[in-house]
Each structure stands twice: as structure tokens, then as C-alpha cells.
Amino acid sequence: MGRGGDADAMPDEFSLIERLFEPLAGPEGLGLKDDAAVFTPRVGYDLVLSKDAIAEGRHYLSSDPPDTVAKKLLRVNLSDLAAKGATPRGYLLSCAWSAETPLDWMQAFADGLEEDQSKFDLSLWGGDTIRVSGPTVFSLTAIGEVPSGRAVTRSGAAPGDDLWVTGTIGDAALGLLVAQGEYAGTEPEDRDYLISRYRIPQPPVAFGKQLSGFASAALDVSDGLLADLDHLCAASQVGARLDRSAIPLSPVFKKCTTSTEERWGLVYGGGDDYQILFAAPREKQERVVDLARAANVQVSCIGCLTEAQDVVVLDEAGQSIDVAPAGFSHF
């Protein structure tokens, strides 16, 4: 930990790195004492890299516990790797701490990273840490590997493919509202579940490693189900028929969203789900289900892809319904 003196006093930059981040470094990071990391990918594998940033007040609340902020930062990137069929190996981290961030918050943040490193089997390879006058901002680059030529992109889907999604949709968006003080009548256990889904995504990393064996296209659901489906369809030059009744919703979500308009608004455009939306040829259905069961991941077939390059949402009676454009955008 510290090297003498007041345990709560802010150390200098290099002592801070030694205290917080050196214990997280893998051999590729050279003890965080060099100018760069050195990594030799395995023969027959391609590197897959993903980068995301999260900002205080924009992607997480100032009241969120620091360990959950760290886990969210790491997991939103691991979600991207999972959607490419990649195995995580390491990450680069940049921290722009607000001037008000205390040392104990930083330490708890590092502890959260350490817990998830163990859970997902990867390590810190390097980065940067600075102080800023505005809110805290973190940026993380995740590095993974996938067998050469087997990365799953957004652009490989074909008409007739089934459309699948992992996990459940809408919990995180509702959890944010609950964390902000809405839904005051929510039962404590339901409140805890929903806020946890907002603070700590659950990307299906183990299942993602299997994607290249069956998926024709994939991406993670981060901006909202309909927005991300639009991205997949545009890249693959296909359309989609989405069966609303097949979209997986958790029991807690259904219990807490009594208004139909409210419920589907959160499902279509709430975002922050960090599940995998993927296409697969119809003959792969059994394989998809078997691999999901082996990975202990819920999968749901929610529609199919079409030649007509539009997205049509079908209600419970199979009738098309008008849905306003939905999804998160920074601009």
C-alpha cells in the first residue's frame, strides 16, 4: 500500500500508480515501469481491440460505488470483445480523476478492477493517470484474441437468418431510473436487482467466445435494442422482423413496468444492456441453444432477417406496429 506517512494523504503520480495499479499489471505490462506494453499474440490468432470511455454524470452517477464504476468500465469493453467472438487478454486504462476524488475512492476503484480481472482472466498492461478540473472520466482499451479470420462482425448476416439476443433487455435502463429516485414504491429486493443491473453489466463473455462457431453477425446491445439492430441491418444490408413478444424481459422488469408505453420505450431504446444481439442461420438453432446452455446463458430467438432493408416490429398478434426511432446517442 503506502510507503509511510499519512495513509490518507494523496501520493505523487508515480507512487499512486505503484499503489493502485502495479498490483493489477500482467507480465505484458512490464510492471508499469516502462513506456509501453509488449504482447506476442498466439500463432494463428488475430488481435481484437475495443475502446470505450465513461464519464461521471454521463455514464455513471456520482453516488455509484467506485468498485461498480470500475467493473462497468471493464465490462462494457468486454461486451464488445464477446460480440466479436474474442477471448479477453488484457487492457489499457486511462484515468482522468476530478480534483475532488479522494484516495479511498481510487483504491476502491482499483479493488473493483482486481475482482473483475480475476473473474474474466485478464490483466492491466498500461495506461495513464491525470487530474482534471472537471468530472472524472475513464477510458479503457480491451485487447482480445480470436482465431485468424474468425472474428464475428456486424456485416455477415443474410436474409433468412434467425435473430437472437442473450440475457434480458430493459433492466439497466429501468435501474438507472430507480437509482435516480423514480419508482419510489419499488420493493427493496427489486430495487437492488435493477440498480445492480445498471451499475454492473453482465456481458456473456464465455458464450461470446463460441460465437464464431455459429453466428453470421453480431454486436453488443449498448445504445438500445432497436438502434443496435439498425446498425446490424445496415452493415449487413438486410432488414428484420422483430417479434416483440419474444424479447426476453426479467420478471422484475415486467412487475415494475405496468405501463405498456413505458415498458416498450425502455426495451426499444433504454440501452446499457450489454448483451449480444446476433444472427445465425436457421440450421444452427440447436447448436446455439446447446452452447448457451453449456455457458449458463439465456438466449432468445426474437425474429429473423429479411431482404427488405427495413426493421418491422410485430406485436403479440403478429401485426406490424409503428415505433419511433429509439436509442442513445452522444450527439
Results as ranks from 00 to 15, higher is better:
Met10His: 02
Pro11Arg: 00
Ile17Ala: 12
Arg19Val: 14
Leu20Pro: 11
Glu22Asn: 11
Leu24Phe: 13
Ala25Lys: 09
Pro27Trp: 05
Leu32Arg: 02
Asp35Glu: 14
Ala37Val: 09
Val48Ser: 10
Ile54Asp: 06
Ile54Glu: 08
Pro65Leu: 04
Asp67Leu: 06
Ala70Arg: 02
Lys71Gly: 05
Arg75Ala: 04
Val76Asp: 02
Leu81Gln: 10
Ala83Asp: 00
Ala83Tyr: 07
Gly85Pro: 05
Ser98Val: 11
Glu100Cys: 00
Glu100Asn: 11
Pro102His: 00
Leu103Arg: 01
Leu103Lys: 01
Leu103Val: 00
Trp105Pro: 08
Asp111Trp: 10
Gly112Tyr: 08
Gly112Ala: 11
Gly112Arg: 03
Leu113Thr: 02
Leu113Gly: 03
Phe120Val: 07
Phe120Tyr: 15
Phe120Glu: 03
Ser123Gly: 04
Asp128Gln: 10
Thr129Leu: 11
Arg131Thr: 05
Val132Met: 04
Gly134His: 08
Pro135Ser: 14
Val137His: 04
Leu140Ser: 07
Ala142Met: 15
Pro147Ala: 13
Arg150Lys: 15
Val152Pro: 10
Arg154Leu: 13
Gly156Gln: 11
Pro159Leu: 11
Gly160Arg: 13
Asp161Ser: 03
Asp162Pro: 03
Asp162Thr: 11
Trp164Ser: 05
Gly167Thr: 01
Thr168Gln: 09
Leu174Asp: 10
Leu177Glu: 15
Leu177His: 14
Val178Asp: 03
Gln180Pro: 04
Gly181Tyr: 05
Glu182His: 13
Ala184Met: 11
Thr186Gly: 08
Pro188Leu: 11
Pro188His: 12
Ser196Phe: 03
Pro201Glu: 06
Phe207Pro: 09
Phe214Arg: 01
Ala215Cys: 05
Ser216Arg: 02
Val221Glu: 02
Ser222Lys: 00
Leu229Asp: 01
Leu232His: 06
Leu232Cys: 05
Ala234Leu: 10
Ala235Ser: 15
Leu242Thr: 07
Leu242Trp: 03
Pro248Gly: 09
Pro251His: 03
Lys254Asn: 14
Lys254Gly: 13
Thr258Glu: 14
Ser259Glu: 15
Gly265Ala: 04
Val267Arg: 06
Asp273Ile: 01
Gln275His: 07
Phe278Ser: 06
Phe278Val: 08
Glu286Pro: 00
Arg287Thr: 15
Ala292Phe: 03
Asn296Asp: 13
Val297Gly: 05
Val297Lys: 06
Ile302Tyr: 09
Cys304Val: 12
Leu305Cys: 04
Gln309Ser: 08
Asp310Gly: 06
Val311Ala: 10
Leu314Pro: 01
Leu314Trp: 05
Ala317Leu: 12
Ala324Asn: 14
